[in-house]
Write a protein that binds this DNA or RNA. Structure first.
Lengths: 202, 202
DNA sequence: GTTGAATGTTCTCCTTTTGTTCTCTATCCT
DNA sequence: AGGATAGAGAACAAAAGGAGAACATTCAAC
């Protein structure tokens, strides 16, 4: 296990290299951590090399290389630690009985598929252009579900589903600047119900 | 089996390590559990080591290592079929060279942890109350990143990060009815950068 | 080449943090 | 009552790591 100092040095080196394309000098590492001792950084860097996280080219200026190994040494798990609940203005509160997030059971399931969303029609439901949605195959839906529907066997659309009187169906976007569609049920074929949504920021 | 105290200590240690990247000191564990006795924590930690859940490096500061759970093997693929792109008013278009969505590489990675979001402060960024976010541990951020920040070592918050003149930092909610915070950089500690967001509708 | 600034290396000295050990108490449960 | 569990707090020693100096090398400019 790394000490706090080693951890900070290692993180700094990784950031620096990805930002600048070459390794930092000891003085730069020190400055990056708010100290001024090159000697101290030398010790830290030696410790990191001993831990196998970096490789040193002794004597060379900026002679630090990252050891390319899976990651930090840990294999990425199928689960992520779920630290708790974050609410503005409060410390992170642990969630009892729920310490890990199992992505598999969280997102996977029978008859599911994914779609990439294009457009802003569901923006007020928090589904943005470029998001990925996971859909459970189903030809029926509950009132209020968000569904993937095929209109006239032609156009596909992601909308909120409502039954209307007279066997009509409303497909409502979540975007004030767009109009809901109200259609005869025969023209609408439900293809699936939205079960989850995800987005990456990389 | 673990005693309640041991359980809490163990959970705290796991969360701390995934959040900070290094092990907590006994005093920090105590504070995390709302007590103040390092001596008592020392006993708990010894018991956890005896139970084989952690490994201790005697005498070392923060000398706690998590024992890797066996059964690691490889992460199961965890993929979903990616049918294509859905845009209102068009048929679903296949995305060339991208027929499956690999959730593992999409969401998992080293140094990541999850948090459940409470509140509407990021609603205009499409992050709603109850969503789960995945955060990459980092103590630095780029301008415009969404970060988990600790203010005065006390309050945690999820906000958009901007550097301001004079070494000040702006933490901006994505909600027109809330005000951005502008704080001295010394009061703000970045804990991680948002890498993804997910939501389920079950 | 020569040269000089940049940079790695080694040491010594110190401060602060932190593990360790002990003693005393306070609960809780059977 | 008696044991298991755990908190408070004090005292001590070791570890981590910063400061700063002195020296050795590297490396790019000349």
């Amino acid at each position: 296990m790394l000490t706090p100092g080693q951890r900070k040095v290692f993180d700094f080196i990784k950031d620096y290299i990805s930002r600048e394309g070459f390794a930092p000098s000891l003085a730069e590492i020190a400055a990056g951590l708010g100290t001024s001792s090159r000697g101290s950084m030398h010790k830290q860097v030696q410790a990191l090399a001993a831990a196998g996280l970096i490789r040193l080219l002794p004597g060379r200026k900026r002679g630090i290389e990252l050891v390319e190994d899976g990651a930090d040494g840990d294999t990425p798990p199928a689960t992520l630690p779920l630290l708790g609940r974050i609410a503005a203005g409060q410390p992170i509160q642990a969630i009892p009985d729920e310490q890990t997030l199992n992505l598999t059971e969280f997102l996977l399931g029978p008859n599911r598929f994914a779609l990439r969303v294009q457009g802003d029609s569901m923006i007020e439901a928090g589904i943005l252009d470029g998001d990925t949605v996971i859909v459970r195959r189903s030809d029926t839906a509950e009132d209020g579900d968000i569904v993937v529907a095929l209109i006239d066997n032609e156009e596909a659309t992601l909308k909120r589903f409502h039954r209307r009187v007279g066997g009509r169906i409303e497909l409502a976007p979540e975007n004030r600047s767009l109009r809901p569609l109200v259609l005869d049920a025969r023209r609408v074929r439900i293809q699936g119900v939205l079960v989850s949504q995800l987005r990456t920021y990389d």
